[in-house]
Structures are given as C-alpha cells and as structure tokens.
Amino acid sequence: MDSLHHDLTVVEQIEVSPPHATIGCKSLPLTFSDIAWFAFPDPVHTLFFYDHPITQTIFIETIVPTLKQSLSITLQHFFPFVGKLAIFPTSTRIPEIRYVEGDSVAVTFAESDLDFNYITGNHPRECHKFYHLIPLLGSTTKVSDYITIPVFAVQVTLFPNHGIFIGMTNHHNLCDASTRFCFLKAWTSIAQSGGSDEPFLANGTLPIYDRLLKYPKIDESFVKNANVETFDEEYKLPRLSGPTNEVRATFILTRTKINGLKKLVSTQLPTLAYVSSFTVACAYIWSCATKVEKDELAAFIFVIDGRSRLDPPIPAAYLGNCVMPCFTLARTTILKSKEGFVTAAKLIGQNLHKMLSDKDGIVKDIGSFEE
C-alpha cells in the first residue's frame, strides 16, 4: 500500500470500464445549460459517509470487489460518466462528451487513520481535513486538434472499525445533481443486487440522451462566450488545497424549528404565496450569515431544476444539466435587523414564486431567444 497523504494510505488505484463491447463509440453534444458551467470551472465534489464498522480484511475482500463490479455494470448504462469531455479550439463546434471502447473511470480505494467521529460530527472541522477524501479528475490530454478531460472519478476510503467514505468528483459540464442522483440510485441498486442490473432495468429509469434542449443559436452563443479557443493541453481544473483557515460545520433545523419559522413568516406575511421549508431554511441561513458582514449588498443564489418547469417540460431522466439560477439581493443592514429573517423569507419566496409560476419565469419559452 502507498502513502498518498499523512492521514491516508492507498489500498488500490484502478481504472474501471464498462463490460467489453456493451456501449460502442458514442458522443453527447453539450447544450447551453451544460456549456454555461465553463464560467464556473470548479469541479463538483460530493462526499457520503456510512457508519459501517468493518475491518480492513472485510473491506478488501468484500466491499472493494462489490463496488468495482457494480460500478462497471452501472457505467454501461451511463456512458457519459466514463467518457471524456472533448473541447475544440473553435466557437463554431460544440463541445461534447465522447466515449470510445477502453475509456475508464479512475477509482481509488484507501484507508484513513483520521478520527471518524471528528470528521462526521456536527462541530466545526477544518476544511482541509476532507480534501484527501475527494478524488481528483485526470489531466487534460491533447488529441489531434482538440483536448479531452476526464469527467468523473471515485474514491472509497475505509476508516477501520468505524465506517466508509465514498467521494466523487465530476466535471460540472457532465451533469447536475438530478442526473448524479439517478446514477447513484442505479449504482446502489446494482450493488445491492450482487452486480445484476435486472432489478434496476425493471424498476429504474434509464437515462435519456436525446438533446431535448434544442436551441442551437443559444448553444453557439454560449460556446463563443466560453472562449474555448483558449483551451489547450495546459488547461487545468481548480483543485482543493490546504491547509486553510476555514472550517466546516453542520447545523440541524428540526421539523419543530422549521414549522415555527414557517408560522412566523405566514403570520407576518399572510399574502406571501411561497412559504416552504426550503424558503424559510434559506432565509434563516442568509439572515444569520450576514450578521458578521459589513454594510454591503448581499446575494443569495441557488439553482432550480428546470426539467418539469420548461415549456414544454422534459423528462426527469434527461441526462445533463438543466438548472436555472434564482438569486436575491438585499443590503446586509436590512438582513441583520430585527425583521431580517422575515425580510429574507419575503424576498426569497417572491423570487421562487416568480421563477416557478410566472410566465416571465423559468416556464417562459426559451425559444423566444432564438428568434
């Protein structure tokens, strides 16, 4: 075993491919909703922890083979995850995700001697303690007249006799959270079935690859604004690094607390159309976070899944990015005031209602921009 970090020992580093000849060469052109993420190049990192007290022997002999086999089977149904992002040095050609026989996903199995309870606790924890649990995407490669970038990587880390962390990194041009969740459900189903994809095929939903967001003029405009002609073999994605002076903490809003917040907002703003758990949770976070800020204009931004809210709607199984931003602005002095929380709830609720209901919101026909 190799030492990758002073708190981490690598058990195995492998490349996992779909079963031979189950996919064939395929490509998936990006749409404007995918291309937009070139402006935000940081990869997406997700980390799941499981309280599963097993030994290293059980991990190596049971968990590792199961995850390898089930991931391989899953990839044959989600070929973009094992493909590579191809970027061409011209704004006249849309970037795409390509899969060719032999492509693979980098998977690392490791062991950590960090305190599992410290990492998984709700107290403040140093951010950089998590970084070595997150896999890195591979390097950019020059191929003929274009470059390719791996879009997905996995790391599984054992904390002996305590639990397991599964870390994943994906290029944001690959997909949004909805697609990633569909992939995880498929992988989980196949792993639980001992490597068989029959239950998934019977009960799951296969991804839809058809480019249902068909707005070529918008695609071309986004590619032009992305300045893809500047991308070359030196292009590198940002990577997490530390140590830093930042900490990560978990704050729990109980159902009783959320219901109390909703009642407060509904009482003071009886005409507010959108008072959901999400609205009050975001308002509470925003009003609390601004208490340490100077007097300035503050923004609260999140994204909304647009699949069911487009006109016409597209299926939930659509693979790719299909999210729209929703943002709210307010001065920190207002948010820090006695009525700061209620004001934040009003602003967020109004914007959500507009995005989800008004004809000028997310449901507006995007095709009007093509005219």
Score class of each variant (00 low, 15 high):
residue 276 S to Q: 00
residue 264 L to V: 04
residue 264 L to P: 09
residue 252 I to S: 10
residue 277 S to R: 10
residue 277 S to E: 09
residue 243 P to N: 13
residue 266 S to N: 12
residue 259 N to S: 14
residue 279 T to I: 01
residue 257 K to N: 02
residue 240 L to K: 14
residue 284 Y to R: 13
residue 252 I to E: 05
residue 259 N to W: 04
residue 250 T to F: 10
residue 244 T to M: 00
residue 281 A to P: 07
residue 265 V to E: 08
residue 232 D to M: 11
residue 280 V to P: 00
residue 233 E to K: 12
residue 265 V to D: 01
residue 286 W to C: 04
residue 285 I to G: 03
residue 253 L to M: 15
residue 241 S to N: 13
residue 239 R to K: 15
residue 263 K to Q: 14
residue 270 P to T: 04
residue 235 Y to E: 04
residue 259 N to H: 13
residue 250 T to Y: 00
residue 288 C to Y: 03
residue 238 P to C: 02
residue 240 L to Q: 09
residue 274 Y to K: 06
residue 267 T to P: 08
residue 281 A to F: 11
residue 238 P to V: 02
residue 247 V to D: 07
residue 255 R to E: 15
residue 270 P to I: 01
residue 250 T to C: 14
residue 250 T to A: 15
residue 239 R to I: 07
residue 230 T to L: 01
residue 287 S to K: 14
residue 243 P to A: 05
residue 271 T to R: 14
residue 241 S to V: 07
residue 287 S to W: 11
residue 235 Y to P: 02
residue 228 V to M: 02
residue 274 Y to G: 02
residue 288 C to H: 09
residue 245 N to A: 05
residue 271 T to N: 08
residue 237 L to H: 07
residue 229 E to R: 11
residue 242 G to A: 00
residue 246 E to L: 07
residue 236 K to V: 06
residue 259 N to F: 11
residue 238 P to T: 02
residue 232 D to I: 00
residue 241 S to C: 00
residue 269 L to M: 12
residue 286 W to M: 10
residue 246 E to N: 15
residue 240 L to Y: 05
residue 249 A to N: 12
residue 250 T to H: 08
residue 274 Y to H: 13
residue 232 D to Q: 03
residue 239 R to M: 05
residue 267 T to A: 14
residue 248 R to C: 06
residue 251 F to L: 14
residue 259 N to Q: 12
residue 241 S to G: 09
residue 287 S to V: 00
residue 262 K to E: 11
residue 248 R to H: 09
residue 252 I to W: 05
residue 283 A to R: 05
residue 242 G to T: 04
residue 259 N to C: 12
residue 230 T to Q: 04
residue 273 A to H: 13
residue 241 S to H: 13
residue 248 R to E: 12
residue 275 V to R: 05
residue 268 Q to D: 10
residue 275 V to M: 06
residue 242 G to N: 04
residue 272 L to H: 03
residue 252 I to H: 12
residue 279 T to L: 04
residue 251 F to I: 06
residue 284 Y to I: 03
